[in-house]
Design a protein around this nucleic acid. Structure first.
Length: 323
DNA sequence: AACCCTCGCAACCGCCTACCG
DNA sequence: GCGGTAGGCGGTTGCGAGGGT
């Protein structure tokens, strides 16, 4: 019988996304939340398959993404987590706020693998490379070399002020023989360790103090309708039932697209001290203005300020990438 | 300046799993 | 319990940028 393709591929666009497509997708997600990816392209007016939309959103457009190279500490985290979890990139990514599984996977394949090999460590097993694969070194010397390399990485990680707990705990927890073993309990331990590590980070001046927190879709503060009560994105479970004004289910497709233009908002610039948000807000203004085109409208996000601070937009990826 | 090669990253593909009727 | 569907995940590919010759 075979599996049906995820979508009707006839007439669907493939390849790199254009900024116009990005805008459409962003507007749709911000207005409606993440729900039913299969329906997203149709409702958002995109000639893409739902899968492609989901990937584009999660890997590139999500506002909580960090861009740029992984820091040394993040690299060390990836190496340690990979030793524990293997190629389970999404699990690894879940411990690195603002990083996607795709990004980590790419970084692993292009950077870390090479780095480890160079240091005489097998990236697959995290053990010293066998003598067959490595240039001939006298056995004791080789061992010393690998140990030094490992110590070097760990030292680098330790230098990151907030990294010590997770690194040492992960190392202690490492299975001596097979690093790819991962039971549920082990994963739970890793989760706990990572959680405690990030707790620590928030309290220190270390690497993560100004990092972007992972936010859930419902935490993204979005003007999704005219009603003052609907200031946050509905979750996938609630998006079709709760809102009376912005629920996609209550519109035909033509109206939906009109309503995606995020009507009648005003930035709360005069009301609150937005601090560094000024730049972001200006960028948003550009973004939204561009979308509404000749309809001169402004857009209002009306969250409490403390909520505002949770939604940190990486301007480089989120704005510059689009415009 | 032109060509070639390498590298990095975004995107695609296909499989797996969870969920629902 | 079974089949179908959607979402998620990991592996792979293709293309553009940058560097070298």
């Amino acid at each position: 019988m075979g599996r049906q393709p995820c979508c009707d591929k006839v007439g669907l666009k493939k390849g790199p996304w254009t900024s116009d497509e990005d805008k459409k997708l962003i507007n749709f997600i911000l207005a409606n939340g993440q729900c039913c990816w299969r329906a997203v392209p149709k409702l958002a007016g995109l000639l893409r398959c739902g899968k492609s939309c989901r990937l584009r959103w999660t890997n590139y457009l999500r506002p909580d993404l960090k861009r740029g190279l992984l820091s040394e500490y993040e690299e060390k985290m990836v190496i340690d987590l990979h030793a524990q979890l293997g190629n389970r990139w999404s699990k690894i990514a879940s411990h690195l706020p603002g990083r996607t599984d795709n990004e980590i996977k790419n970084h692993w394949n292009t950077h870390i693998k090479k780095k480890l090999r160079k240091m005489g460590i097998d990236p697959l097993t995290h053990k010293p490379l066998s003598t067959i694969e490595t240039p001939p070194l006298p056995p004791p010397q080789q061992e010393v070399q690998v140990q030094e390399n490992i110590q070097e990485i760990e030292q680098q990680a330790v230098q990151q002020s907030c990294s010590t707990s997770i690194v040492s705990e992960l190392d202690q927890n490492k299975e001596p023989e097979t690093s790819l073993q991962s039971t549920v309990t082990q994963e739970e331990e890793i989760n706990n360790m990572a959680a405690s590590a990030y707790d620590t980070m928030e309290q220190t001046d270390g690497f993560c103090i100004d990092e972007v927190p992972l936010i859930e879709p419902h935490e993204i503060l979005v003007p999704c309708g005219l009603s003052p009560s609907s200031t946050s994105i509905p979750t996938s479970s609630s998006s079709s039932s709760t809102s009376t004004s912005s629920s996609s289910s209550s519109y035909d497709s033509n109206n939906i697209l009109e309503d995606l233009l995020l009507p009648d908002f005003e930035w709360p610039i005069n009301n609150v001290d937005i601090g560094l948000w000024g730049d972001y807000l200006n960028s948003w203004d550009v973004l939204i203005s561009d979308v509404v085109g000749d309809r001169k409208q402004t857009t209002m996000f009306d969250p409490p300020l403390n909520q505002c601070s949770r939604m940190i937009l990486d301007q480089d990826s989120w704005i510059n990438g689009l415009l």
